[in-house]
C-alpha cells in the first residue's frame, strides 16, 4: 500500500518536473532573436536608423534603415544618386565617432565631396582586398567585429552565392552593423536573405527607389527622391 502511494507521488513529481522543463525550453526558444512571433509584433521596438529622407523613412518599417542587417541596393549604373541616399546616415554615424568601412569601392571616394556632406574622414576606412576570397573574409570580419557601425560593399565580377550572403547577413547581426551591399539589377530575380532590398533607377532628374522586399513589412512601393538642386540646376547654355 505504502509503495503504491510512493509511486503515485513520484509520478506526479515527475510530471511536474517535466512540465517545468518543457516550459523552460519554450522560454529559451522564445528568447531567441530570430524567432518571429506574430503576437509580439506590436510590442517590438521598431527603430531603424533614419535615412535622412522623410519619404523613404515613411515607407520603411522601422522608419529607417534596418539595424544589424543587410540592405541590398540593386542598380545598374552609377551616378544616379545612390551614394546621396546613404551619405546622411554615414555622416551621422561618423560624427558620432563610429567607424564606417568601404570595401573595394568602384572609384575613389572623393574627400572634398564627402566632407561637404558632413562625413568625418577620420572615421572612414577603405579596404581594397585582392581576390574574391579575401574580400569576403574582410567583409565578414569587419561586420562581426562590433567596432564598425556601417559597411558598404560592392559586388565585383564574382556573384555571391546564397550561402555567402546569408553568412554576411548573420555577421551583420552579430556585429550590430549596418551592411549596405551594392549589386546589379539582374540579381533582383534571385532570392536573397537581405532584410531590405531596394532597386534604384533614374527617372529624369530624380532617383527612383523601388522597394522590392522588406522583412516584416510590405514591399512593392516605389518613390522618387529629388537630387540636390545645386546639381541639376540648368545654366544658360553658352555653347
Amino acid at each position: 500500500m505504502a509503495e503504491s502511494v510512493n509511486s503515485a507521488e513520484n509520478f506526479f513529481q515527475n510530471k511536474q518536473l517535466k512540465h517545468q522543463s518543457e516550459r523552460r525550453n519554450l522560454e529559451q526558444i522564445l528568447a531567441r532573436t530570430d524567432i518571429w512571433q506574430a503576437a509580439n509584433e506590436q510590442r517590438r521596438p521598431l527603430s531603424g536608423i533614419p535615412t535622412g529622407f522623410r519619404s523613404l523613412d515613411a515607407v520603411l518599417r522601422g522608419h529607417g534603415w534596418p539595424r544589424n542587417a543587410t540592405t541590398e541596393l540593386l542598380l545598374n549604373q552609377t551616378g544616379i544618386g545612390e551614394m546621396t541616399l546613404l551619405l546622411p546616415t554615414l555622416a551621422q554615424l561618423t560624427q558620432a565617432g563610429q567607424m564606417v568601412i568601404l570595401v573595394s569601392p568602384p572609384f575613389i571616394p572623393y574627400a572634398p565631396a564627402l566632407v561637404q556632406s558632413g562625413i568625418q574622414l577620420e572615421n572612414l576606412l577603405l579596404i581594397h582586398p585582392r581576390g574574391h576570397k579575401d574580400t569576403l573574409w574582410a567583409v565578414e570580419q569587419s561586420l562581426q567585429s562590433g567596432s564598425c557601425s556601417a559597411l558598404l560593399s560592392w559586388q565585383g565580377n564574382h556573384t555571391l552565392e546564397d550561402k555567402e550572403l546569408r553568412r554576411l547577413q548573420l555577421a551583420a547581426r552579430n556585429g550590430e552593423c549596418l551592411h549596405f551591399h551594392f549589386r546589379p539589377i539582374s540579381e533582383s530575380q534571385n532570392p536573397s536573405p537581405a532584410s531590405l532590398r531596394l532597386q534604384l533607377g533614374s527617372d529624369g532628374e530624380q532617383l527612383a527607389v523601388n522597394l522590392l522586399k522588406q522583412r516584416g513589412g510590405t514591399g512593392g512601393q516605389s518613390l522618387h527622391l529629388a537630387r540636390g538642386a545645386n546639381l541639376i540646376r540648368r545654366d544658360r547654355p553658352i555653347h
Binding site: 574627400a111 566632407v115 574622414l121 576606412l125 577603405l126 581594397h128 570580419q141 567585429s145 567596432s147
Partner: peptide, 26 residues
C-alpha cells in the same frame, strides 16, 4: 570600442597586408 576597432585593424592588416587598408584625408 577603440580596442575592438584596433583589433580589427590588426587582423585586417595581418591578412590583407599594409597597403590594402587606408583612410582618406583632405
Amino acid at each position: 570600442q577603440g580596442e575592438r576597432s584596433s583589433q580589427l585593424l590588426d587582423k585586417l592588416k595581418a591578412r590583407l597586408g599594409h597597403q590594402a587598408i587606408s583612410g582618406i584625408a583632405l
